[in-house]
């Protein structure tokens, strides 16, 4: 067996918040070049998993490891994880009043670039503007977007686009997209998915959290996992998503209950 470190692995992760256990033993291995989808009913723990991966300080980890390029990142603060190439597109992005997208993005891009590619790899204001313009065009966003305050007064769809814009600029190696599709209209879903596909390359990997089959028609996963009550109950290929769309979660629940008993 070819012993190679996977890009990303979760081992027996138990985590929660305020003493309440939400993730109850999650295992997942994701290799470079792979796209995984994570589905599951409301409240099953998908966003919790995303937060724990990104390093949200309010979540407690009771057990297990998260390995990124072989290193356990659980002790690292969120900014260090980001500077290593991890990215989370938030389900509910936070507004920061008074901070323009452009100011924020330039600082973010340069701190990540310096950490990953070297101190001299920061972009000059001009280079940054060029890159920003290019990515805005790719996502069919108005240039004026850059001078708006971060997520403030953004429509649901604009927020999601802005998340993917950030992903485009930060060039992560492992990205978690938490319900990026919800809130997007039909055309926007296509534009954003196209954008993600263009960003995707065989050296990186994606974990796409969604409730709907539709986005998976554009961003095509090789693996689909279903989370139930803090555990990955079922994993399969893309056909699993279609099956869920058809049959709902009850079907998985009863099967999972059988398997567990």
């Amino acid at each position: 067996m070819a012993e190679q470190t996977p890009l990303f692995a979760i081992e027996n992760l138990r985590a929660g918040i305020e003493g309440k256990e939400i993730l109850r033993g999650v295992n997942l291995v994701i290799e470079r070049g792979e796209i995984h989808a994570l589905m599951g009913p409301n409240g099953s723990g998908k966003s919790t998993l995303a937060y724990v991966i990104a390093g949200h300080p309010n979540y407690e980890v009771y057990e297990g490891r998260i390995l990124y390029k072989g290193e356990n990142i659980l002790e690292l603060p969120p900014d260090e994880r980001a500077r290593m190439g991890l990215f989370l597109a938030f389900q509910y992005p936070t507004a920061i009043p008074g901070v323009t997208m452009a100011n924020f993005l330039r600082l973010a891009v340069n701190s990540v670039r310096k950490a990953r590619y070297g101190e001299d790899k920061a972009l000059s204001p001009r280079e940054f503007r060029r890159l920003l313009r290019e990515k805005l065009q790719m996502l069919r966003m108005e240039e004026s977007f850059a001078s708006r305050y971060l997520n403030e007064g953004f429509s649901g769809g604009e927020k999601k686009r802005a998340e993917i814009l950030q992903m485009a600029l930060l060039e992560p190696e492992f990205a978690v997209l938490d319900e990026t599709d919800s809130g997007l209209d039909i055309d926007a879903l296509r534009t954003v998915s196209d954008g993600v596909n263009r960003l995707f390359n065989p050296t990186m990997a994606l974990l796409v959290i969604t409730h709907y089959q539709r986005i998976l028609n554009y961003i095509r996963p090789q693996f689909v996992h279903v989370m139930l009550d803090g555990k990955i109950a079922v994993s399969g290929g893309p056909e699993l998503a279609e099956e869920l769309e058809e049959k709902g979660y009850d079907w998985v629940k009863s099967r999972f209950a059988e398997a567990a008993s």
Partner: peptide, 30 residues
């Protein structure tokens, strides 16, 4: 200063101090 704001900015690679400064500068932007 909302923890969610700090976390959001930090998850984009900003250190805690940078994130704080950014939130404060945004607050006084008017």
């Amino acid at each position: 200063v909302a923890e969610e704001q700090l976390f959001y900015l930090q998850s984009r690679g900003l250190s805690e101090a940078e994130a704080m400064s950014m939130i404060v500068n945004g607050f006084i932007e008017p």
